[in-house]
Every structure is written in C-alpha cells, then in structure tokens.
C-alpha cells in the first residue's frame, strides 16, 4: 500500500526527535543532511553504509584543494536573466535573487560559477521526464548561470517557481525551490543545494528539506525577502547568501 503523508510525518518526527535529543546530550550539530534518511525513499539504496574515509587536507599536493575555473566564455549575459531567454515573457511573479558566495571564514569567493534550475510558475520543469499535468511555459526554460563578481555576489532575474507533486508518497508536494550548483576555489567546496522561500506551508511535510535535521541549518536554506532588492514596477527581491564547506588551498597558504 502506498505510504501516506501521515506515515512520512511520523518518520520525520522520529528522526527529528532523535537528532534533537542527541544534540541536547552533547552530540555534534549536523550542518548537512544525513545520507541515510528513510523518509526520502530514493535514499534507501543510494547511500553508503561504510563510513567516509578522512583525507587530510593539510597536504598542498592534494588535487581536491584546487578546483575548476570558469571565465567569460562559459556564460553569456542573458544566462543570468531567465526571463529573456525566449521571444516572450514567462508567466509568473518576477524576482531578483541575489546574495554572496562565501567561504567559512567569510571571504568572498570571486569569479566562480553558479548554475541554477527551477520549475516554472505552475510547478513544472521543462524536462521531458516530468509529465505532471501542469502547463509548460513556452517562454521559460528555467536554467541560469552566472559568475560571482569581485565581492562574491551573484544576481539572477527569474520568476517564482511553483510547488510541485512528486512520487515519494501519496500527496507528496515539494515546497517551491530553486536548485543551485556552486563551485568554490577548491573541489572540496563543491555544493549542490536548493533555496526556498520564506514561510512556505509545505516545509514540514517535505522529507527533502527535513533531511537536514538541524533547524538552524534548515533556516540557512531559506531566502529572505529584501525590499531593497525589489525593483520598482519590476520584481520582488530575495537575498540568499551561500557559505561553502570544505578545506581549500587558500587555507594552507594563510597557515590555517
């Protein structure tokens, strides 16, 4: 029998309670989700059971302490504006999404690639394998790219994506989100994640967001409405900073 939302809610709550209790008892805060998170059914056979093997990042010859670089040829000007990639305007609430890309010491990560992808305003991806009965928008592909500037800042113009159903359990709906793929100065800092919008009522039902069991960490995935970023007569402004984890060569150069 198909799982219901209340079955999933119970599993989410049990794992949340276990995490909160562990932290109250002195366990380390988890900044990232646990790869073994049964409420997200697709994770069952896709997480390793052996512990990760630690690699000491103190050796400067470690290949992963450097990483790919991107430049002006890897993006075009219209890649950061998802509303001008077709002949007409996409339907939806126009947004300006901007923030800074930082390392854990708060230093801007400059000139690095940020890629985004998202559903349209009706909650449908322009991806052939997605066939749920919401309309495609001929004026919206939902793919963007940009390089961070000298302050580590990025900026996209897009439309607000809709929530969409998925097959994890009966009546499963993803809260509205934008997928982000990000590079740091080191390959160790590679990150793929999702940005959410404030106060979405679907948060508590979503096993993907709830796989991040730390409340403060979950909150870091939610953008802030920022009126100063809103453009008069044009767009709603959302601010979202991204902080990359993992050691990098710059840490070694500076004796960290």
């Amino acid at each position: 029998m198909a799982l219901t939302q209340s079955d999933i809610d119970v599993e989410i709550k049990d794992l949340q309670d276990a995490y909160d209790k562990a932290v109250a008892g002195g366990a380390l805060v988890r900044n990232h989700p646990s790869r073994d998170y049964p409420p997200y059914r697709s994770s069952l056979l896709r997480h390793p059971k052996q512990p990760l093997v630690a690699v000491d990042g103190g050796d400067p010859e470690t290949v992963e302490l450097s990483g790919p670089v991107f430049g002006v040829t890897d993006i075009t000007e219209h890649d950061s504006d998802l509303t001008i990639q077709h002949r007409g305007e996409p339907i939806g609430e126009r947004m300006t999404v901007s923030g800074r890309l930082l390392d854990r010491d708060g230093r801007p990560v400059r000139g690095q690639l940020i890629e985004i992808w998202q559903a349209n305003a009706a909650g449908r991806y322009a991806h052939l394998r997605e066939q749920h009965p919401a309309p495609l928008d001929p004026n919206f592909t939902g793919v963007g790219r940009t390089l961070t500037n000298d302050q580590g800042r990025y900026r996209f113009t897009t439309i607000k994506p809709g929530p969409y159903p998925w097959g994890n359990h009966t009546n499963a709906w993803r809260p509205a989100h934008i997928h982000f793929s990000v590079f740091g100065t080191a390959f160790t800092q590679r990150l793929i994640t999702q940005m959410y919008f404030p106060s979405d009522p679907l948060f508590r039902y979503d096993p993907i967001l709830q796989s991040v069991t730390d409340q403060a960490a979950r909150d870091r995935l939610i953008a802030t409405y920022q009126h100063d970023l809103s453009q008069p007569e044009f767009s709603m402004g959302y601010e979202w900073d991204i902080v990359l984890d993992g050691p990098s060569a710059t840490w070694i150069e500076e004796g960290r």
Binding site: N31, P33, L102, H127, V143, I192, V212, L244
Partner: peptide, 18 residues
C-alpha cells in the same frame, strides 16, 4: 567561522540544466 549552507539532492530534473 560561518556555518555552511547545507547540501541537498540534485533531484531528477537537472538534465536540461547541468
């Protein structure tokens, strides 16, 4: 030190993007 942005799954629909 700043706390990192948590990771999330890439999901199924990145094929037209990445």
């Amino acid at each position: 030190r700043l706390l990192p942005t948590p990771s999330h799954t890439i999901g199924p629909f990145y094929g037209h993007a990445l």
